[in-house]
Nucleic acid binder design. Structure first.
Lengths: 330, 330
DNA sequence: TTGTACGCGTTATCAC
DNA sequence: GTGATAACGCGTACAA
């Protein structure tokens, strides 16, 4: 059933029905009621494709994020997609995942949607390099970074107060009396990594302690495990280890468990993110909670605003404060 | 740029360009080359909406799954969506999440897509009741159940060998010498729960042991925790507990950890699913691995087949065998 | 092998 | 306040 058929059935023109369905003004109450009744009765819905064609607008939002290969990698990260997908859906936009690969960059695949077919983009996570972000900018569509930012270019983004939180975490390790405090980070071009290093460095400098930073090629559970050996941990070790995310911290703790080394006294550990698993390690992990749901919500709402008010070209950097969660690894 | 504009630019009719883009036969090599070159040069892509309109086909697959409210609930389940979303995307179909709520049923919300706008549906997980599944059937579109099935109606579905696996798990507890072996399950109308109870019952009957089944209102981490108190566990307890999923088993183990009760000797625990976290508990969890990726892949491929060959109306129940993973809680 | 003409279902514009 | 009509961009039947 289409507009024309319905129109013939109830003897009201297609344009009028269209007006009712689009909440346009200037319809008599009588006809409006008549139309609404018929729509209800016939379970009538407008054709999605025809509508998009004539309105020349896209209802697709591309969600660009790094393609993770192992299940382990997938599972140990926040699922911020839940929050913003819901909001976008409520506003009649569909989320389409677009993969970014470390080696071949952003890949639109053989999908029937080209960059031009999107209303806008959300670029998720810290691991998308500046070069790729700028390439998205070239599409000329609204986009926003989530959990990422750029230093040299003004860009719409939503981040947390990385440096402050990492400063606080490091202070916890310092106040506990550790003299050797190591910060384990990931690739040095990631925005969050840089910010968190700043926080760590500030705290260490204030305490006049020697900084020790280890860069891992990736920030997943398995690399966290590796740092255990890298740092030569044994029963005698006295050390504070601050990981750039929970996934690595959990890997480290698990490796300690497997080696019967106790965490929380001579060896302190802090993570970052407060993923759900963080409270379930033995012992539970001290970390910084990122309000990822709020951040995702903010990002999607801001993107929707950018799409509907394309003349408004100011860039906004939103900082959503996280908070320190003290558990038992410190 | 649209077909007509490109057509004028390279002096080849729009229909010919359309033919080239749709891999239709009967084009001279010369014009084909000319067209392909122009497409490449101009970064030309077909308009998605216009294409769907004229072909009168939908590129949307509805993914119906239970709406979970807490982050905890979200995280402790398999992410089978990853696997099938990728396959569907490769075939130019888009996944649109559709929420099912325990109280108000399947909710299409105010989305611009009505049931008719979908090419088909994947119904995920065991917690969607038969009534809702049958209501989807009424849409007259192809659909397939993932990790669920129906007893009274033939239905396309992909499940694992629930009963066999639970039988094996129970045998492990029996062989370990436990005399009291409790099975903790969820709502009794869930297909998987019923199947797993069958497996448990078979093993218990064979061993002439008394069955003890506890039904919880939901099968999440927190309800798993609750069973610890429910079963009056202390240092003296000798018991085997078989949980209907890992989430609950992990909750139980965590509660045991918190109470300094050791798991793996007098108290044995088995889960079901082998979610990533199962290997990371203290001690690591013995469970049955479900090959959820294979299952998701199978479901999506079968659905695509049903969509393209709508005349083929036979129903297929695919059983993907899982396997027992023995770790340290038994 | 290629081009022309029409229709898909909707919205916007213009008339009445 | 309502209706007729012309687009939107593509695929396909038919003509050449």
């Amino acid at each position: 059933m289409n507009l024309k058929e319905l129109s013939e059935k109830i003897e009201v023109s297609a344009s009028t029905i269209s007006r009712v369905l689009n909440d346009k003004p200037g319809i008599s109450e009588a006809t409006r009621a008549k139309v609404l009744e018929a729509i209800e009765k016939e379970h009538f819905t407008l054709n999605f494709a025809a509508r998009n064609l004539v309105k020349a607008e896209s209802r697709f939002i591309g969600i660009i994020s790094r393609k993770r290969t192992s299940v382990e990698d997938v599972i140990f990260f926040h699922h911020s997609i839940n929050q913003f997908q819901e909001i976008l859906l409520q506003n009649n936009y569909f989320c389409v995942p677009i993969a970014y690969y470390d080696d071949k960059g952003i890949d639109f695949g053989n999908a029937p949607l080209s960059p031009n077919d999107y209303a806008g983009f959300i670029i998720r996570g810290q691991s998308i390099p500046q070069k790729e972000i700028l390439s998205v900018k070239k599409f000329g569509k609204p986009f926003i970074l989530l959990e990422n930012s750029l230093y040299e270019t003004k860009v719409n983004c939503v981040v947390c107060n990385d440096a402050e939180l990492e400063y606080e975490l490091t202070k916890i390790l310092i106040n506990k009396g550790h003299k050797r405090i190591v910060h384990v980070t990931g690739p040095d071009y990631w925005y969050n990594n840089k910010e968190r290093i700043k926080g760590y460095s500030n705290a260490m400098n204030e305490a006049a302690l020697e900084k020790e930073i280890i860069c891992m090629e990736d920030t997943v559970l398995s690399t966290g495990r590796k740092t255990f050996e890298l740092l030569n941990i044994d029963e005698e070790t006295n050390i504070g280890v601050s990981f750039v995310n929970d996934a690595m911290a959990i890997g480290f703790i698990k490796e300690a468990n497997d080696n019967n080394i106790k965490i929380g006294e001579n060896i302190s550990v802090v993570g970052f993110d407060d993923i759900p698993w963080a409270s379930l390690t033995t012992p539970p992990l001290t970390t910084a909670r990122i309000e990822i749901d709020d951040m995702g919500k903010l990002a999607s709402m801001r993107l929707l605003d950018m799409i509907s008010n394309s003349n408004n070209t100011k860039t906004v950097k939103s900082i959503v404060d996280g908070k320190i969660i003290i558990r038992n690894t410190t």
